[in-house]
Design a protein around this nucleic acid. Structure first.
Lengths: 242, 242
DNA sequence: TAGTGGTCTAGACCACCGC
DNA sequence: CGGTGGTCTAGACCACTAG
């Protein structure tokens, strides 16, 4: 890339790279050289100006589009977004790994395990026929012996047949499913909830304490796999960068 | 791509594409044709097998690596991850847009605005010199007249000079900063908190109610821009897909 | 040090869709 | 219709790193 015409001090003697191209584009966006809402030159022109292949410009612009900084449409060209949305990527962890990464000793306890007819809310969520059974499991994840998260889960046994014969003593349902029931898609919801009496007792906190709760439902193609509610111990924070 | 040798029913008569290649790789991962933890053939071999260019294989594998399904290392090759982590992408919205998308009428109210010396916690977070001033603003975002989120914010006036002369009547600090103070990076934290007396009064809820809270701190290169705490009204859920 | 992924290039064809 | 981005290809060189 050669940007010496527009910014001599930015010039690098090194070989061109899509990261440099992207950095130059970012500079133009941030310094309002390219006006928000306006179209920028097309790929071919930019490639010529920066003295690189169109594919390199394409790679840089595709990256900016994924980040939501520009909009790209065939024929219409590429535009700088007016309100660039902030995107955050969270990693939904395996609790054992998350706890061990914090330097704590991990342990899990199965508080309850039962094959039974689920309540209607769960039945609909898992898209089960009326009267069919499912596996209900409640797991406590502990870090250094202290409650970390309570996992209240239902597993669809027609999708994950092998789960019925697994007692989850050595490996938690969370980790077992990650390894044995690959999913194609799912939904996640975060919210805050005052601890109910029973959840409070499990977590060893006061009823009414604010808990961060995560609901998840996963599918393999058209078949539901599992739905779970994770209630984190009070004070739990989910951290990430932008 | 030509996958007829391994799965006749998957064969497409259409032209090859990296999406088809990725789909085939996904199939091999999900059906355990490629064993978790094991290395898969290198790009050149796969390109030959699938009868496409190495760049196409590269594109597909790069995508799977971004999704966390495989690990790629030079010289070491590509491996299927043992515990594929679930990734979630959240969009940190402009509250006006989020509220209007829900079909509600948006309005914001500035509850407090003051240029003053921030408390030490904020001063350190914004990396300000002792004794320097900052702009404190409290904003309420309303949907159909009902409290939606409370925004308690501090703005670094040395980075965003123009903010000092803006009263934020027509446009909320949230939206104004998105449009006028592009950031390079930042940190975000989610957690749950029992509503304090004052926050509860602002949101019109009971003290002690569980609230979902979002803390954010953004930077432009080495200079802090703003730090904000968003307290959502009770029952607020953050939804997303996997 | 050799093998792997990472990237760039030049050229090409195509799908889409504003005009 | 024609211009734009989306993608593929074949070949090449390079950076990294496991062994």
């Amino acid at each position: 890339m050669n940007v010496s015409e527009t910014s001599p001090e930015t010039t690098t003697a090194q070989s061109t790279s899509w990261l440099e191209v992207r950095a130059e584009f970012l500079r133009r966006i941030n310094e309002r050289v390219w006006i928000p809402g306006e179209a920028i030159p097309n790929e071919a022109e930019l490639a010529q100006e920066l003295d690189c292949a169109r594919a390199t410009v394409n790679r840089a612009l595709r990256d900016l589009a994924e980040k939501g900084l520009v909009t790209r449409k065939r024929r219409a060209g590429t535009r700088v977004k007016l309100n660039p949305p902030a995107h955050v990527t969270l990693q939904i962890p395996i609790y054992r790994e998350e706890i061990e990464e914090k330097g704590m000793a991990y342990r899990h306890v199965i508080l309850q395990r039962e094959i039974t007819i689920p309540p209607n809310v769960i039945r609909h969520r898992l898209d089960l026929a009326e009267g069919s059974m499912a596996l209900s499991i409640t797991t406590m994840h502990l870090g250094d012996g202290r409650p970390y998260a309570l996992d209240q889960r239902w597993i669809n046994l027609s999708t994950v047949v092998e789960a019925a014969s697994c007692n989850f003593d050595r490996i938690s349902p969370n980790e077992w499913l990650v390894q044995n029931a690959p999913y194609s898609h799912g939904d996640i919801a975060f919210f805050a909830e005052n601890a109910s009496q029973t959840v409070a007792e499990h977590l060893g906190v006061n009823s009414g304490d604010a808990l961060l709760v995560l609901d998840r439902l996963t599918w393999r193609n058209q078949s539901s796999i599992t739905t779970t509610r994770i209630s984190f111990a009070p004070g739990h924070r989910i951290l990430t960068g932008i």
